Computed example of a mutant assay.
Amino acid sequence: MTEQTRTAPPATAHEAPRIVTRTGLGKFFADTGAVFTREILLVLRDPFTLIFSLLQPLIFLGLFGPLLTGTFGGGFGGGSGSVSTADTLQWFVPGVIVMISLFGTSMSGSNLLYEIMTGSYERVLATPLDRSAILVGRALKEFAPLLVQGLIIALVCIPFGFTFHVLPALLGLALLGVFGIGVGALSHSLAQASKNREWLFWGVQQSLLFPLLILSGMMLPLEAGPSWMQAAAKFNPLTYMVDAERALFAGTVADPAVLWGAIAACVTCVVGVAVGIRSTRRAV
Protein backbone atom coordinates (compact mmCIF):
# COMPACT_ATOMS: atom_id res chain seq x y z
CA MET A 1 0.00 0.00 0.00
CA THR A 2 1.24 3.38 -0.87
CA GLU A 3 1.01 6.14 1.70
CA GLN A 4 -1.28 8.95 0.63
CA THR A 5 0.05 12.41 1.20
CA ARG A 6 -1.82 15.68 1.21
CA THR A 7 -0.21 18.72 -0.21
CA ALA A 8 -1.15 22.19 0.95
CA PRO A 9 -2.04 24.75 -1.69
CA PRO A 10 0.91 26.88 -2.70
CA ALA A 11 1.18 30.14 -0.84
CA THR A 12 1.14 33.30 -2.83
CA ALA A 13 4.27 35.34 -2.88
CA HIS A 14 2.56 38.58 -2.01
CA GLU A 15 -0.61 38.29 0.05
CA ALA A 16 -2.58 41.53 0.23
CA PRO A 17 -3.28 42.70 3.79
CA ARG A 18 -6.88 42.65 4.89
CA ILE A 19 -8.19 46.17 5.53
CA VAL A 20 -11.11 46.52 7.89
CA THR A 21 -13.22 49.57 7.22
CA ARG A 22 -16.14 50.80 9.27
CA THR A 23 -19.40 51.58 7.54
CA GLY A 24 -22.77 52.90 8.56
CA LEU A 25 -23.34 53.82 12.19
CA GLY A 26 -19.97 52.41 13.26
CA LYS A 27 -18.12 54.85 11.02
CA PHE A 28 -20.38 57.73 12.08
CA PHE A 29 -19.74 57.19 15.81
CA ALA A 30 -16.02 56.65 15.28
CA ASP A 31 -15.69 59.81 13.20
CA THR A 32 -17.79 61.78 15.69
CA GLY A 33 -15.49 60.66 18.51
CA ALA A 34 -12.41 61.66 16.51
CA VAL A 35 -13.79 65.14 15.77
CA PHE A 36 -14.93 65.62 19.38
CA THR A 37 -11.50 64.59 20.70
CA ARG A 38 -9.76 67.01 18.37
CA GLU A 39 -12.03 69.92 19.35
CA ILE A 40 -11.91 69.30 23.10
CA LEU A 41 -8.11 69.01 23.04
CA LEU A 42 -7.95 72.52 21.56
CA VAL A 43 -9.92 73.77 24.58
CA LEU A 44 -7.73 71.89 27.07
CA ARG A 45 -4.54 73.23 25.48
CA ASP A 46 -5.83 76.79 25.89
CA PRO A 47 -7.76 76.82 29.20
CA PHE A 48 -7.37 80.58 29.56
CA THR A 49 -10.14 81.05 26.99
CA LEU A 50 -12.48 79.04 29.19
CA ILE A 51 -11.42 80.96 32.29
CA PHE A 52 -11.66 84.35 30.57
CA SER A 53 -15.21 83.60 29.41
CA LEU A 54 -16.24 83.44 33.09
CA LEU A 55 -15.30 87.08 33.74
CA GLN A 56 -18.41 88.56 32.12
CA PRO A 57 -20.90 86.39 34.07
CA LEU A 58 -19.07 87.13 37.32
CA ILE A 59 -19.26 90.85 36.57
CA PHE A 60 -23.00 90.53 35.95
CA LEU A 61 -23.41 88.73 39.26
CA GLY A 62 -21.29 91.23 41.18
CA LEU A 63 -22.78 94.41 39.74
CA PHE A 64 -26.22 93.56 38.40
CA GLY A 65 -27.32 91.34 41.29
CA PRO A 66 -27.23 94.07 43.97
CA LEU A 67 -29.20 96.37 41.66
CA LEU A 68 -31.95 93.75 41.42
CA THR A 69 -32.03 93.42 45.20
CA GLY A 70 -32.54 97.12 45.66
CA THR A 71 -34.90 97.71 42.74
CA PHE A 72 -37.41 94.86 43.11
CA GLY A 73 -38.16 95.11 46.79
CA GLY A 74 -41.61 93.68 46.19
CA GLY A 75 -40.37 90.26 45.18
CA PHE A 76 -39.82 88.38 41.96
CA GLY A 77 -42.46 86.71 39.88
CA GLY A 78 -45.37 88.41 41.60
CA GLY A 79 -44.23 87.58 45.13
CA SER A 80 -44.47 89.95 48.08
CA GLY A 81 -42.15 91.06 50.81
CA SER A 82 -38.52 92.15 50.85
CA VAL A 83 -35.88 90.48 48.71
CA SER A 84 -32.61 89.37 50.26
CA THR A 85 -29.29 88.79 48.48
CA ALA A 86 -29.84 85.03 48.72
CA ASP A 87 -33.25 85.36 47.04
CA THR A 88 -31.73 87.46 44.28
CA LEU A 89 -28.96 84.92 43.67
CA GLN A 90 -31.43 82.03 43.64
CA TRP A 91 -33.35 83.83 40.89
CA PHE A 92 -30.44 85.40 39.01
CA VAL A 93 -27.76 82.66 38.97
CA PRO A 94 -29.71 80.24 36.72
CA GLY A 95 -30.29 83.07 34.25
CA VAL A 96 -26.56 83.85 34.22
CA ILE A 97 -25.74 80.18 33.57
CA VAL A 98 -28.15 80.18 30.63
CA MET A 99 -26.48 83.38 29.43
CA ILE A 100 -23.11 81.59 29.46
CA SER A 101 -24.61 78.86 27.30
CA LEU A 102 -26.15 81.32 24.86
CA PHE A 103 -23.03 83.45 24.50
CA GLY A 104 -20.60 80.55 24.23
CA THR A 105 -22.54 78.37 21.80
CA SER A 106 -23.81 81.18 19.58
CA MET A 107 -20.24 82.41 19.07
CA SER A 108 -18.76 78.93 18.51
CA GLY A 109 -19.23 79.31 14.76
CA SER A 110 -16.58 82.05 14.74
CA ASN A 111 -13.88 79.38 15.17
CA LEU A 112 -15.26 77.52 12.16
CA LEU A 113 -15.44 80.79 10.22
CA TYR A 114 -11.74 81.36 10.92
CA GLU A 115 -10.93 77.86 9.64
CA ILE A 116 -12.95 78.54 6.50
CA MET A 117 -11.16 81.82 5.87
CA THR A 118 -7.71 80.25 6.37
CA GLY A 119 -8.51 77.20 4.23
CA SER A 120 -7.98 74.60 6.96
CA TYR A 121 -11.65 73.60 6.93
CA GLU A 122 -11.37 72.57 3.28
CA ARG A 123 -8.68 70.07 4.26
CA VAL A 124 -10.99 68.66 6.94
CA LEU A 125 -13.75 68.20 4.35
CA ALA A 126 -11.29 66.41 2.06
CA THR A 127 -10.64 63.70 4.67
CA PRO A 128 -12.63 60.43 4.73
CA LEU A 129 -14.54 61.69 7.79
CA ASP A 130 -18.30 61.50 7.56
CA ARG A 131 -19.54 65.07 7.05
CA SER A 132 -22.43 64.58 9.45
CA ALA A 133 -19.92 63.44 12.10
CA ILE A 134 -17.89 66.62 11.57
CA LEU A 135 -20.88 68.74 12.56
CA VAL A 136 -22.06 66.51 15.41
CA GLY A 137 -18.57 66.20 16.90
CA ARG A 138 -18.13 69.97 16.89
CA ALA A 139 -21.56 70.50 18.43
CA LEU A 140 -20.97 67.93 21.20
CA LYS A 141 -17.82 69.77 22.18
CA GLU A 142 -20.01 72.60 23.50
CA PHE A 143 -21.39 70.40 26.29
CA ALA A 144 -18.22 69.94 28.38
CA PRO A 145 -17.30 73.64 28.80
CA LEU A 146 -20.91 74.45 29.70
CA LEU A 147 -20.90 71.89 32.48
CA VAL A 148 -17.64 73.20 33.96
CA GLN A 149 -18.59 76.86 33.71
CA GLY A 150 -22.04 76.32 35.22
CA LEU A 151 -20.61 74.42 38.17
CA ILE A 152 -17.97 77.10 38.81
CA ILE A 153 -20.57 79.91 38.80
CA ALA A 154 -22.86 78.01 41.18
CA LEU A 155 -20.02 77.10 43.58
CA VAL A 156 -18.72 80.68 43.66
CA CYS A 157 -22.16 81.93 44.75
CA ILE A 158 -22.63 79.44 47.61
CA PRO A 159 -20.76 81.57 50.22
CA PHE A 160 -23.10 84.49 49.41
CA GLY A 161 -26.26 82.56 50.24
CA PHE A 162 -26.98 80.61 47.06
CA THR A 163 -28.48 77.16 47.76
CA PHE A 164 -27.05 74.46 45.51
CA HIS A 165 -29.27 71.38 45.05
CA VAL A 166 -26.81 68.93 43.51
CA LEU A 167 -28.91 66.43 41.54
CA PRO A 168 -31.54 68.88 40.19
CA ALA A 169 -28.75 71.32 39.28
CA LEU A 170 -26.84 68.61 37.39
CA LEU A 171 -30.05 67.75 35.54
CA GLY A 172 -30.40 71.42 34.68
CA LEU A 173 -26.85 71.55 33.32
CA ALA A 174 -27.47 68.41 31.25
CA LEU A 175 -30.63 69.99 29.84
CA LEU A 176 -28.68 73.13 29.08
CA GLY A 177 -26.06 71.03 27.31
CA VAL A 178 -28.71 69.57 24.97
CA PHE A 179 -29.88 73.10 24.21
CA GLY A 180 -26.31 74.27 23.67
CA ILE A 181 -25.65 71.51 21.13
CA GLY A 182 -28.52 72.80 19.00
CA VAL A 183 -27.46 76.45 19.25
CA GLY A 184 -23.84 75.51 18.48
CA ALA A 185 -24.94 73.60 15.38
CA LEU A 186 -26.96 76.60 14.19
CA SER A 187 -23.94 78.82 14.78
CA HIS A 188 -21.81 76.51 12.64
CA SER A 189 -24.45 76.66 9.90
CA LEU A 190 -24.36 80.46 10.01
CA ALA A 191 -20.56 80.40 9.73
CA GLN A 192 -20.72 78.16 6.65
CA ALA A 193 -23.33 80.44 5.08
CA SER A 194 -21.20 83.51 5.81
CA LYS A 195 -17.92 82.00 4.50
CA ASN A 196 -15.52 84.91 3.86
CA ARG A 197 -18.03 87.56 4.99
CA GLU A 198 -17.15 87.79 8.66
CA TRP A 199 -19.32 90.88 9.11
CA LEU A 200 -22.39 88.86 8.09
CA PHE A 201 -21.84 86.27 10.81
CA TRP A 202 -21.42 88.81 13.60
CA GLY A 203 -24.25 91.00 12.30
CA VAL A 204 -26.78 88.16 12.33
CA GLN A 205 -25.46 86.70 15.60
CA GLN A 206 -25.64 89.99 17.49
CA SER A 207 -29.01 90.93 15.99
CA LEU A 208 -30.55 87.69 17.27
CA LEU A 209 -28.64 87.33 20.53
CA PHE A 210 -29.78 90.34 22.52
CA PRO A 211 -33.52 90.24 21.65
CA LEU A 212 -33.56 86.56 22.65
CA LEU A 213 -31.73 87.41 25.87
CA ILE A 214 -34.04 90.25 26.88
CA LEU A 215 -37.26 88.44 25.89
CA SER A 216 -36.33 85.40 27.98
CA GLY A 217 -36.58 87.15 31.32
CA MET A 218 -32.96 86.23 31.95
CA MET A 219 -31.91 89.63 33.25
CA LEU A 220 -35.18 91.19 34.44
CA PRO A 221 -38.58 89.73 35.37
CA LEU A 222 -40.92 89.74 32.38
CA GLU A 223 -43.81 90.49 34.73
CA ALA A 224 -42.50 94.06 34.91
CA GLY A 225 -42.66 94.47 31.12
CA PRO A 226 -45.54 95.45 28.82
CA SER A 227 -48.07 92.89 27.63
CA TRP A 228 -46.66 92.73 24.09
CA MET A 229 -43.27 91.77 25.47
CA GLN A 230 -44.78 89.01 27.62
CA ALA A 231 -46.63 87.70 24.55
CA ALA A 232 -43.48 87.73 22.42
CA ALA A 233 -41.58 85.86 25.13
CA LYS A 234 -43.89 82.87 24.72
CA PHE A 235 -42.43 82.29 21.24
CA ASN A 236 -38.86 82.41 22.54
CA PRO A 237 -37.44 78.93 23.36
CA LEU A 238 -34.94 80.58 25.67
CA THR A 239 -37.81 81.67 27.94
CA TYR A 240 -38.69 78.05 28.68
CA MET A 241 -35.03 77.20 29.26
CA VAL A 242 -34.65 80.00 31.81
CA ASP A 243 -37.83 78.97 33.65
CA ALA A 244 -36.72 75.32 33.71
CA GLU A 245 -33.26 76.19 35.03
CA ARG A 246 -34.72 78.33 37.81
CA ALA A 247 -37.03 75.53 38.85
CA LEU A 248 -34.25 72.93 38.82
CA PHE A 249 -31.72 75.08 40.66
CA ALA A 250 -34.41 75.70 43.28
CA GLY A 251 -34.60 71.93 43.74
CA THR A 252 -38.03 71.46 42.10
CA VAL A 253 -37.86 68.67 39.52
CA ALA A 254 -41.63 68.12 39.22
CA ASP A 255 -42.32 71.70 38.13
CA PRO A 256 -44.17 71.87 34.74
CA ALA A 257 -41.58 74.43 33.64
CA VAL A 258 -38.99 71.62 33.59
CA LEU A 259 -41.05 69.66 31.07
CA TRP A 260 -41.47 72.69 28.81
CA GLY A 261 -37.75 73.41 29.10
CA ALA A 262 -36.93 69.83 28.12
CA ILE A 263 -39.20 70.13 25.07
CA ALA A 264 -37.58 73.43 24.06
CA ALA A 265 -34.08 71.96 24.49
CA CYS A 266 -34.85 68.82 22.46
CA VAL A 267 -36.57 70.74 19.65
CA THR A 268 -33.68 73.22 19.46
CA CYS A 269 -31.16 70.36 19.41
CA VAL A 270 -32.97 68.39 16.69
CA VAL A 271 -33.57 71.42 14.47
CA GLY A 272 -30.04 72.75 14.95
CA VAL A 273 -28.31 69.44 14.23
CA ALA A 274 -30.54 68.79 11.21
CA VAL A 275 -29.80 72.22 9.72
CA GLY A 276 -26.11 71.89 10.56
CA ILE A 277 -25.76 68.44 8.97
CA ARG A 278 -27.49 69.67 5.81
CA SER A 279 -25.21 72.71 5.51
CA THR A 280 -22.09 70.62 6.19
CA ARG A 281 -22.99 68.05 3.55
CA ARG A 282 -23.53 70.83 1.01
CA ALA A 283 -20.25 72.59 1.87
CA VAL A 284 -17.72 72.75 -0.96
Rank of each mutant, 00 (worst) to 15 (best):
M1G: 14
R6E: 15
R6D: 10
R6Q: 14
R6S: 13
P9M: 14
P9S: 15
P10L: 15
P10H: 13
A11T: 13
V20M: 10
L25D: 04
L25Q: 07
K27Q: 15
F28W: 08
F29W: 14
T32L: 08
V35A: 02
T37Y: 13
I40L: 11
R45K: 15
T49D: 12
I51G: 08
F64H: 07
L67C: 09
L67N: 08
L68G: 05
T69R: 12
T71Y: 11
G73H: 09
G79H: 00
S82R: 01
S84G: 04
D87Q: 08
Q90P: 00
I97S: 03
I97A: 02
V98I: 08
M99L: 15
T105P: 00
T105R: 01
N111Y: 14
Y114S: 14
E115F: 11
I116W: 01
V124G: 07
D130F: 03
S132F: 06
G137Y: 03
L140H: 03
K141L: 01
P145M: 02
L147W: 11
L155Y: 05
T163S: 12
V166A: 11
L167N: 07
L175T: 00
L176D: 00
L176P: 04
V178P: 02
V178L: 13
S189K: 02
Q192V: 11
A193G: 12
E198I: 14
W199S: 15
G203R: 06
L212G: 08
L212P: 11
L212Q: 10
L213K: 08
L215H: 05
S216P: 00
M218Q: 11
P221V: 07
G225F: 14
P226D: 15
Q230T: 09
M241T: 11
R246C: 03
L248M: 06
F249T: 05
G251S: 04
G251F: 01
V253H: 04
V253G: 02
P256H: 09
G261M: 08
G261Q: 06
I263P: 02
A274H: 12
I277Y: 00
